[in-house]
Amino acid sequence: MSSKLYVGNLPYSVTDDSLRSNFSEYGAVASAKVMTDRETGRSKGFGFVEMGTEAEAQSAIDGLNGQSVDGRSIVVNVSRPKEAGSTGGGYRSGAGRY
């Protein structure tokens, strides 16, 4: 298991600091980042938290997964590595040209 967690279905009001604060109840938080849109700066509704140890990460999953934050039931699970070959969408030069 990894100590890096995916946190989904976040309310748009959640910030890096509030995310860190929520997870710090379960152990040391190495990093907390809410993902934002590059152009607007608005939250994308998900983020990543890295806990100090795997045990702390599991404790945070057990304690926070499914909990309500500002009326939204958040999802907390172990972050999976990005799949090889996945571009994540977006613009690619020359895409669709024949």
Rank of each mutant, 00 (worst) to 15 (best):
P11T: 05
S43K: 06
G47L: 04
S79Y: 11
P81T: 00
L64A: 03
G66K: 04
Y98T: 06
T40R: 03
G45W: 15
Q67N: 13
N65P: 11
K33R: 14
A28P: 09
D70C: 00
Y91D: 00
E25Q: 12
F23N: 06
N22I: 11
E54H: 11
Q67H: 14
S2H: 11
G85V: 04
G94K: 00
G47V: 02
T53Y: 10
G89K: 00
E54P: 13
Y12F: 12
S59E: 15
V69I: 12
A60D: 07
V34F: 12
S43H: 04
A95C: 03
F23K: 04
L19D: 10
S93M: 09
A32F: 08
Q58G: 14
G45R: 10
G27C: 02
N9Q: 10
G27L: 02
D70G: 00
R92M: 00
S2L: 00
G85Y: 07
E50N: 05
R72K: 13
G89I: 03
L10G: 08
Y6Q: 08
G41S: 07
G63T: 04
Y91S: 01
V29G: 03
S3T: 10
S3C: 07
N9I: 09
V75G: 02
R97P: 02
G94A: 02
N22A: 09
V14C: 04
S2C: 03
G27V: 00
R20F: 15
Q67A: 05
G63S: 06
Y6I: 01
N77S: 12
A32N: 01
S31N: 11
F46P: 15
V7R: 02
G45Q: 13
S18D: 12
L19S: 06
S86M: 05
Q67K: 15
N77I: 06
K4G: 07
R97E: 07
A84T: 08
A60K: 08
V76R: 10
S86C: 05
G63R: 04
V7Y: 07
K44H: 12
M51S: 06
G8L: 01
R72I: 02
R42H: 14
R38I: 01
D62L: 02
S59W: 13
M51R: 03
N77W: 09
Y26T: 05
V34T: 11
V29T: 06
N22H: 15
Y12A: 03
N9H: 13
G89R: 01
V76H: 13
T15I: 04
E56H: 09
R80W: 02
E54A: 08
V69F: 09
G66V: 02
G41F: 07
N77G: 08
D17W: 10
S73L: 06
K4H: 14
S21I: 12
A28K: 15
K4W: 08
F46N: 07
R92W: 00
Y12H: 12
G45M: 13
G45E: 15
K33I: 14
K44M: 14
K4P: 12
V49R: 06
T53D: 10
S68D: 10
R38W: 06
G88L: 00
A28R: 15
P11K: 01
P11G: 00
S68I: 13
G71I: 07
T36C: 12
N65M: 09
S79D: 14
S2K: 08
K82W: 05
E39Q: 14
E54Y: 09
D37V: 01
Q67S: 14
E50D: 10
I61Q: 10
